[in-house]
């Protein structure tokens, strides 16, 4: 229950780094096959139910829409990899706050967009820091901590804007959100860049390697000289910043800021991370997987929307599919092993 015993548990700590690299290479493409085939099958299904669904332009739109969810899954992925039941239920609230503060500051004050960006980095880092302190030192479970923080963040955004945020998205953000570079949506390029940079950080930097080690076995990581606290702090701070800045991108996509506009992304981001092959027990996972998970979920939602299905049935189907996916390929090994 507490953690799926990963191969690393038994591995000698010294050999662990090599072990990880091996596993990544081995699983590089294998783990993406289910998500990719599911995406293709859903596109075909969509095309049958609503002709034009699988046209190039609509696929571009679907991918661009998926980028917003992928951004929400970015911080979530890191937090989940960090292990010890790491999960972030404040992502949606952080994104809402990012959009609300972003629009208010960049449009209504002299700070402008870049001032807003700095301010949001500060706010995101602060919230991440509080998370990390409470989780690492007060031993509050991440689920409860981030959940409690979500209500505070939402409450703060409400108090800050007095419920009536003002301003429209800065041009640069709308250019990212709905603009094109040549025939391709800018948002899509943005998403690809994000995944590439994220994967580089995970695989090629010391932080990334330490994160995987700390995620699979905190004790072993600590014994091998990794500052586990530092890794966890950095992770939650990055997640916080990713949340508020993700709110800015969402603002560009939507155009205006509304209270609670990001709330729906919290649970979806967890689903995207898991569908993308990241184990909730920590210690494994990739950004690319989460991004693909976001793509599957976005296509699924759009297919269900395209056939104009009643909300209850839509929810029922989403739940049933998630359960099925989990039951088939997210199982922990048997206890007797």
């Amino acid at each position: 229950m507490k953690g799926r015993p990963v191969e690393l548990n038994d591995a000698a700590v010294a050999g662990a780094g090599r072990n990880i690299r091996l596993r990544l290479a081995n699983s590089k493409f294998r783990i993406y096959i289910p998500v990719l085939s599911a995406s293709v099958a859903l596109l075909i299904l969509g095309q049958i139910l609503s002709p034009g669904f699988a046209s190039a332009s609509n696929i571009g739109n679907l991918l661009a829409t998926a980028v917003v969810l992928a951004i929400a899954s970015f911080g979530q992925t890191l937090v989940v990899i960090s292990g010890q039941e790491g999960i972030d239920l404040s992502i949606g609230a952080m994104m809402s706050m990012g959009a609300l503060i972003g629009v208010q500051v960049s449009d209504q004050s002299s700070l402008g967009l870049w001032g807003a960006v700095l301010l949001l980095i500060g706010t995101g880092a602060l919230v991440g820091l509080i998370h990390a302190v409470c989780i690492q030192f007060l031993r509050i479970p991440p689920l409860v901590m981030t959940l409690g923080m979500a209500t505070v963040v939402d409450g703060f955004a409400l108090a800050y804007t007095k419920g009536l945020p003002s301003g429209t998205a800065p041009k640069l953000l709308t250019a990212i959100g709905i603009g094109h570079v040549g025939p391709i949506r800018t948002l899509l390029l943005f998403g690809i860049a994000m995944v590439v940079i994220g994967e580089f950080v995970l695989r090629r930097t010391r932080y990334g390697r330490n994160l995987y080690l700390a995620g699979s076995n905190r004790m072993a990581a600590a014994l091998s000289g990794i500052h586990v606290n530092v890794v966890v702090f950095v992770t939650y701070v990055i997640a916080g910043i990713a949340g508020t800045l993700g709110g800015l991108v969402m603002l560009g996509f939507v155009g205006t800021a509304q209270l609670g506009m990001g709330d729906g992304y919290t649970l979806l981001s967890i689903a995207a991370v898991v569908i993308g092959g990241t184990a909730l027990a920590g210690g494994e996972g990739t950004f690319l997987g989460s991004a693909l998970g976001a793509v599957v979920l976005t296509i699924l939602t759009s297919v269900l929307l395209a056939v104009g299905m009643q909300e209850g049935v839509r929810e029922l189907i989403q739940g049933a599919i998630l359960l099925l996916v989990l039951a088939i390929y997210s199982r922990a090994p048997k206890l007797r092993q």
């Binding site: 967890i270 689903a271 898991v274 909730l280 989990l326 039951a327 997210s330 199982r331 922990a332 090994p333």
Partner: peptide
């Protein structure tokens, strides 16, 4: 089936 209870 031993799936994470949070997700189930």
């Amino acid at each position: 089936l031993r799936v994470s209870p949070l997700l189930v």
